[in-house]
Design a protein around this nucleic acid. Structure first.
Lengths: 106, 106
DNA sequence: TTCATTGGTTACTTTCCGTAACCACAATAA
DNA sequence: TTATTGTGGTTACGGAAAGTAACCAATGAA
């Protein structure tokens, strides 16, 4: 029994955050919203490989998690604008460390 | 045509890194290997919800990407030890920013 | 009147992932 | 001897996640 692990339990928060930010497209969506708020179709244009079906689903999840705010603009065809909350913006900043890693190593 | 996007192309490296780190379990695996190298079964014990099938698959991918080194220890039943490369360790450090975010916001 | 645009939604297919059984090999237990 | 255990996988199978394409209501433009 080689149980010389100093730590044999993963921190709950850490586990939760990887379960969350590790979901497909989440990183790119947050990254996309960092510069400025964007409409549904703009996000979709930005990430063409992300289908509308999943984009809808992911945005709903991000809204429920307090990462994103969904703002309805009552135009002719109604427009929806998504913006980051403080929580979401903080996540985006944290993710920039990973982006820097990518620029160095990929 | 409201094409007043200052940036309408995602950086390739950024896109690639999210396609990569956004894969299920990758973050937790790198996190797990940060403290010290670990054997296959130790990783599996650390992340019980990650199946052996996918763990095998993910470790192979991480090895191919130069994140991890697979070291064969010729014991009675052969043991495999996985350790992070410099590239992998750098990724782990970048991910700590996300973990800090998690500890603050989750 | 017909067409395009908005942000979705719906059915269908493909891909991903968890479950459980299995493998060879050697050491140990009975 | 024979059965059992532990190693790091691999395999077949089923369910969940995600991609594809068609469709929707409401409005405005041609």
């Amino acid at each position: 029994m080689t149980s010389q692990d100093s730590t044999n339990k993963i921190c709950n928060k850490v586990e939760e955050c990887y379960h969350f930010t590790g979901k497909k497209w989440v990183g790119l969506i947050v990254y996309t919203l960092m510069r400025e708020p964007k409409r549904f179709s703009e996000i979709h244009t930005f990430i063409p490989d992300l289908s509308k079906r999943v984009l809808t689903e992911r945005m709903k999840e991000l809204e429920d998690s307090g990462i994103v705010i969904r703002n309805v603009i009552p135009d002719r065809p109604v427009r929806i604008e998504y913006s980051l909350t403080k929580k979401g913006n903080d996540l985006g900043i944290a993710l920039q460390a990973v982006e820097s890693w990518a620029k160095k190593w990929l």
